[in-house]
């Protein structure tokens, strides 16, 4: 079927304060298309299905292989990466494809949102191993394969924001850090040198916006494209903060 076309409905917004509107685009079908190749087609042919010339749709992307996290959006109601969203599979469930920007972050334009809050929160929770500088100081601590395995699973978080999009507790007008950042606290606190700043991280977790804001709805873990064990991380950091606060209590802090 060379003439087959697919329909893309896209929620657009011209700038931060403009009101959103919908446009439909009709795109020639090719096998193995993904949502990004549809958006690339629109960039080259910015005409809506009813023939109106418009501006190309703005979106964020880089790696095109689901490893940078940039291209996250809401596709047919589900938050995911648009580069790994294959058209054939989307069409198995629906006869058209609907694209919307993530709702938990301010829209910059069209499907492009501002996720800087996520990176700011990583700063607040000291998301790094406090090394003594870049001089040659020998190897890091040895690690068992099992421990490496656990840390590797946590280290793959690409700050895409899917887990925040589905979290009922993460909203535009609160300051909850969300599952991704909590999991990073676990990541750094389980590293022998990272643990040197464990107390600071746990203090941040005990502040408003920290771990106690999590309602344990477990939506986050279901959507994480990197299969990060988020609920396990939340439980783990929960335990760490409890122990930390008991210690603080007995130390009279």
């Amino acid at each position: 079927m060379p003439d087959r076309t697919i329909q893309l409905k896209i929620k657009r917004q011209d700038d931060q304060s403009a009101s959103p509107y919908w446009q439909t685009f009709s795109i020639p079908y090719r096998p193995n298309m993904n949502v990004i190749s549809c958006l690339q087609y629109i960039a080259a042919h910015p005409t809506t299905a009813d023939g109106t010339e418009t501006t190309p749709v703005v979106w964020d992307c880089s790696c095109l292989e689901e490893v940078c996290g940039a291209c996250t959006m809401v596709i047919n109601g589900e938050v995911r990466q648009s580069c790994s969203a294959l058209v054939d599979r989307l069409l198995e469930e629906d006869d058209s494809i609907k694209l919307e920007p993530m709702t938990k972050f301010p829209v910059v334009r069209d499907l492009f949102v501002d996720r800087s809050r996520l990176f700011e929160d990583l700063k607040k929770t000291q998301g790094w191993v406090p090394i003594d500088g870049l001089y040659s100081l020998g190897p890091g601590p040895w690690e068992s394969p099992a421990k490496q395995d656990t840390r590797y699973d946590l280290s793959r978080c690409m700050s895409c924001g899917c887990c925040l999009e589905v979290c009922p507790q993460y909203t535009r007008n609160n300051n909850f850090v969300g599952a991704a950042v909590i999991s990073q606290v676990r990541y750094f606190n389980t590293h022998p040198i990272g643990a040197n700043n464990a107390a600071e991280r746990l203090n941040a977790m005990m502040e408003p916006g920290g771990i106690s804001d999590c309602g344990n709805a477990q939506n986050c873990v279901k959507v994480c494209p990197k299969d990060i064990p988020l609920t396990e991380s939340i439980a783990d950091v929960g335990r760490m903060t409890t122990i930390h606060s008991i210690k603080q209590f007995f130390r009279g802090e």
Binding site: V129, I131, P139, G140, S144, P145, Q148, R151
Partner: peptide, 22 residues
């Protein structure tokens, strides 16, 4: 070799041998 050591100190989860080395 010292660059690998440095990355190791930064916490890169390099794959490990049974003994825990890289």
């Amino acid at each position: 070799p010292q660059i690998i050591d440095l990355l190791d100190r930064m916490g890169v989860p390099f794959n490990r041998t049974p003994e825990g080395r890289r």
